[in-house]
Design a protein around this nucleic acid. Sequence first.
DNA 1: ACGTTGACCTATA
DNA 2: GTATAGGCCAACG
Length: 120
Amino acid sequence: MTKKSKKSRKSRNDSFFERVYEVVKCIPEGRVTTYGAIARFTGSPQSSRMVGWAMNASHHCPGQVPAHRVVNRQGILTGKNHFRHPDLMQELLESEGIQVDNDRIVNFNRVFWDPYKELI
DNA sequence: ACGTTGACCTATA
DNA sequence: GTATAGGCCAACG
């Protein structure tokens, strides 16, 4: 099993998504990150859309991926609408000690978790 | 196979 | 602050 078993090697193992999951899973409690930071860390600074797309699949297939810890640049819970319950995202964040006001994270700069500085 | 959409980011007006 | 444009890659019709 080596040559043409699965054809492309980047089918389901070394996908762009896998990298995203790895980073997101490394996010500690009480911390959040942005799509852009992840996209940048994965190697594509402008592929932030794919990060969101990965999250969409994350709660459908893979293990526990704290997608609720991933927000946009403004610290707004953009993807809360895609959760099982729109308010679930805020609930989880508040449960971890993150204050959320009007779908926006309070002191976003403080809870921001940068993979470049923390991870590595 | 092609075109559109998607949980975004940055820049310009 | 809102609106428009470009970009990236993957999934869906």
